[in-house]
Structures are given as C-alpha cells and as structure tokens.
Amino acid sequence: MASRLVMLMAAVALTGMVLALPARAGDASDVRAAISGQIEAFRSDDGASAYSYAAPNIQAMFPSPQIFMGMVRSGYAPVYRSSNTVFGALEAEGAGFRQEVYLTDQNGQSWIASYTLERQADGSMKITGCAIRKGDDLAA
C-alpha cells in the first residue's frame, strides 16, 4: 500500500513538472509568427489574411473577415494600428500559450496585448483570444 502511495505521489509530481515546462523553441517561433503575421495583415488592411490567424472559436464568433476586421477596428485599435511591437515572455497555459506583446499606438501610448494561442490539429498555431490594457508610459 505504501509503495502505491509513493508511486502515485511521484506520478503527480512528474505531471506537475511536465505541465510547468516552458514552451519549446518551435512553439515560440510559431506563436511569434502567428501574432506578427496578423499584426502585419492589420497594417495592410488585409482582412482575409488577418482572419486566417484566428482560431475556430474566434471565427465562429465573427463568421467573416469583414465582421472580424470591424470588431478589431472598433475594439482593438492599438493592435490594429500599432507603431511598435515588442514580445515579452511566452508561457504555457492550459492546452496552449499566453504571449504578452507590448505595443505603441499612433498617439505614443503604450499598450499590453495578452494573446492566447493553441496549436491546431493541422499543426498550425492560431490565436484564440486577445485582451488589451493600457501601459504606463507615453513615447516622447
């Protein structure tokens, strides 16, 4: 009985360590490529390309590139027209990842976009969500 308890405790500890592992280098480059690709598509007003980086859950809420771009223009202006992007640390979160991106809007205000992403069944990395909040500074 004691050996089963020890084995169970070891399995739980190992599971916790696996879940706490940082993202692999390939994951980091795929996450950056997805976010950067979408931001570049926003800058070019390429709705179809921007929409292609959205995960199925986002595409279900906004069923066309035009509707998606309208939502982005009205609710995510700092992401839609950022003048600067700097990537923070990537963290594993649940079945996917969280990536903080530091942005500067057209007025010099800093913003932090917190992206969530998941690898899809086809191997692609897609954006499952984004929340933005104001940063603490203005560019001079």
Rank of each mutant, 00 (worst) to 15 (best):
M1F: 15
S3I: 11
R4T: 05
R4C: 06
R4F: 07
L5F: 13
L5Y: 11
L8A: 15
M9H: 00
A10E: 01
A11G: 11
V12T: 13
A13K: 06
A13M: 08
A13C: 12
L14P: 07
L14S: 14
M17K: 04
V18R: 01
L19K: 06
A20N: 01
A20P: 03
A20E: 02
L21T: 02
A23L: 04
A23S: 02
R24E: 07
A25N: 08
A28Q: 12
A28H: 05
D30M: 09
A34M: 03
I35E: 02
S36K: 00
S36Q: 08
G37P: 03
E40I: 00
E40W: 00
E40P: 00
A41E: 01
F42H: 03
R43G: 10
S44T: 05
S44A: 14
S44W: 02
D45V: 01
D45L: 04
D45G: 10
D46P: 01
A48H: 07
A48L: 05
A48G: 06
S49T: 12
S49M: 11
S49H: 06
A50D: 01
A50Q: 03
A50K: 03
S52T: 01
Y53P: 11
A55D: 06
P56W: 02
N57M: 04
I58K: 02
I58N: 00
I58S: 01
I58C: 00
Q59K: 14
A60Y: 02
F62V: 09
F62W: 13
P63C: 06
I67E: 14
I67Y: 04
F68H: 07
F68M: 09
F68W: 11
M69T: 10
G70H: 09
G70E: 15
M71V: 12
V72R: 12
R73K: 13
S74P: 01
G75M: 10
Y76R: 09
Y80S: 13
R81A: 15
S82Y: 10
S83T: 15
T85Y: 13
T85I: 15
T85M: 15
V86H: 12
V86G: 08
F87T: 06
G88C: 01
A89I: 07
L90P: 00
L90W: 04
E91A: 15
E93S: 15
G96A: 13
G96W: 13
F97P: 06
Q99E: 07
E100K: 14
V101K: 05
V101E: 10
Y102H: 14
L103C: 07
L103I: 06
Q106W: 13
N107C: 11
G108H: 06
S110V: 01
S110A: 05
W111Y: 09
Y115N: 04
Y115Q: 05
T116D: 04
L117I: 09
E118P: 02
R119Y: 14
R119H: 10
Q120G: 12
A121W: 14
D122I: 12
S124P: 11
M125K: 05
K126Y: 09
I127M: 08
G129L: 04
G129V: 08
R133Y: 09
K134D: 11
K134S: 15
D137Q: 15
L138P: 01
A140S: 12
